[in-house]
């Protein structure tokens, strides 16, 4: 949480006043938040055809995260020099910290094979000057401050699709509850406009935040990673106590789809699955979704100047999700599907 504290995130987004239902009703439109993508035609994040709003910032550090750009709660530079750099050198000219490192491409066949670039993330202050001048799109900014009004404008564009298919808006991330004011305002505005709402959460959020948004949420996509608190803390950085408490709290109060990312070597063994099943068996939820592991986010790690925490060759055995499904069913969780 120190990174968040440094950004002044806490101060600006204090949880105070959230429980008040009336809030600043007329003011929801102008509430701002940090968003890194708005994806229309999402068909895996809740029922029907949906628009998923990805909020930036997450308290967890799951090594398998497929959206690494979602983790930090501030805008970042995404660098795809390898494919797109034209070697024009403009980014070097404008960078005030000289954070863009240029190395000669070492090619035996030609004298001048051009240059390779990378960003020294320790020096980079994220002033985004390089992004502004880059002509090829090799540098781009991930994370934009958007108002609820702007986002709802985009969400409304697909209203007819939601109405026909039973879809709506899904807030995902990152962790949407890490921006409680913004999330609340988005949800409240969506409900005011009669749009179905879903929140995709890690469950790691203060109780009062959950309480605050609950009246405006039609469906919670609740991620469960592991039943064991120690393993959970060691792997993703936070305890799972709060998460399971929150799940219990939500149980029976709203519709819930529990989502379990099936991570090889972490939670895909019989013991891991049974432990999760045992924890949730008595709770009230609609269904459990198994999300098979994929490493499609690995390219984005490189673009962010990070290394992929899991080894590249970690691949889930194709039979594994089915096995997990069988195990869940055997452990008493009947409504269990694999989302592909």
């Amino acid at each position: 949480m120190t990174a968040l504290g440094k950004m002044g995130w806490r101060r600006n987004n204090s949880f105070k006043g959230l429980s008040g239902r009336s809030g600043r009703r007329g003011g929801d439109d102008v509430v701002e938040g940090l968003v890194f993508n708005i994806q229309k035609f999402s068909i895996h994040d809740g029922p029907g055809i949906r628009t998923t709003v990805f909020l930036k910032g997450c308290p967890l550090r799951c090594p398998w995260c497929s959206n690494p750009e979602s983790i930090n709660p501030f805008p970042e530079v995404l660098a795809k020099f390898e494919n797109l750099c034209l070697d024009c050198g403009r980014c070097n000219e404008v960078c005030p910290r000289e954070a863009i490192v240029v190395t000669k491409k070492d090619r035996a066949d030609v004298d001048d094979g051009g240059h390779m670039r990378s960003i020294d993330r320790d020096l980079c202050e994220r002033c985004m000057k390089c992004v502004e001048v880059c002509p090829s799109g090799a540098l781009s900014k991930v994370g934009e401050v958007r108002t609820v009004g702007e986002i709802m404008g985009l969400v409304e564009q697909d209203r007819l699709f939601y109405e026909t298919s039973g879809g709506g808006i899904t807030l995902s991330g990152g962790e949407p509850l890490l921006q409680p004011h913004f999330t609340l305002a988005l949800l409240r505005e969506a409900k005011r406009r009669s749009i179905h709402t879903a929140v995709d959460t890690s469950g790691h959020a203060p109780r009062e935040v959950l309480e605050g948004v609950l009246p405006y949420v039609d469906l919670v996509l609740f991620d469960i990673k592991h039943a064991d608190p120690v393993i959970h803390r060691d792997t993703v950085g936070v305890d799972n106590l709060l998460i399971f408490n929150n799940l219990e709290y939500l149980s029976g109060k709203t519709r819930i789809w529990i989502r379990v990312p099936l991570i090889p070597g972490f939670n895909d063994d019989k013991a891991g699955i049974c432990a999760i099943a045992e924890k949730i068996r008595r709770l009230c939820f609609d269904k459990l979704c198994i999300l098979p592991y994929h490493n499609w986010g690995s390219g984005k790690y490189a673009a962010l100047g990070r290394s992929y925490p899991l080894s590249e060759k970690d691949e889930t055995n194709p039979a594994c999700p089915c096995l997990a499904q069988a195990l869940f069913r055997a452990a008493g969780v009947q409504d269990c599907e694999i989302v592909r």
Binding site: N37, S42, I43, H44, D45, T52, N67, W296, V339
Partner: peptide, 10 residues
């Protein structure tokens, strides 16, 4: 070309 997987953006 968008890759559509649950909770994933790319």
């Amino acid at each position: 070309l968008i890759v559509r997987v649950a909770g994933y953006s790319a």
